[in-house]
């Protein structure tokens, strides 16, 4: 599958994919930034509330941005759909609202797909990869 970059401003284009986030009964069409620097997929907490995703009370994480400000995140499991592939993901949900889109990180995205980014061509090639541990 090949997707195109998103042009945010005249100076900024980002590799952002159209994704569907799904619980047992609901789904939300959302966007996710391809971020190989992130170990997990991260989504806004409001998504979890809307979908009714049960967030772990025991497994909490504090996430720190470059600004140094710390926010609390909780793990939850949902179904992520990219292209025609649906699969379960254990993701972090936090109040990342001002980051404006989800983050597609190593666990839950890069462990499912081979990804090739080309800023010059403005393309994001996403191909299924065999499951690796």
């Amino acid at each position: 599958m090949t997707f195109s970059y998103q042009r945010i401003t005249s100076q900024i284009s980002r590799p952002i994919l159209p994704i569907i986030l799904r619980s047992n009964t609901k789904f939300v069409a959302y966007w996710g930034l391809v971020d190989s620097g992130s170990d997990y997929c991260v989504f806004d907490q409001e998504i979890a509330e809307t979908l009714g995703v049960r967030l772990s009370k025991e497994e909490k994480v504090n996430i720190k941005g470059v600004s140094g400000k710390s926010i609390e995140g909780k793990f939850g499991i949902l179904v992520l759909k990219i292209g025609d592939k649906n699969y379960k993901v254990k993701a972090v949900f936090a109040k990342i609202g001002k980051f404006n889109h989800g983050i597609l990180g190593t666990k839950g995205f890069f462990d499912q797909f081979d990804v090739k980014l080309s800023y010059r061509k403005r393309t994001i090639e996403v191909n299924r990869s065999p499951q690796v541990n």
Binding site: S38, V66, K98, F99, N100
Partner: peptide, 15 residues
């Protein structure tokens, strides 16, 4: 969700 200010992203979050 549209941020208040459109700023370049440098690095991400860390646990």
């Amino acid at each position: 969700e549209i941020p208040d200010k459109i700023l370049p992203i440098i690095g991400g979050y860390r646990i």
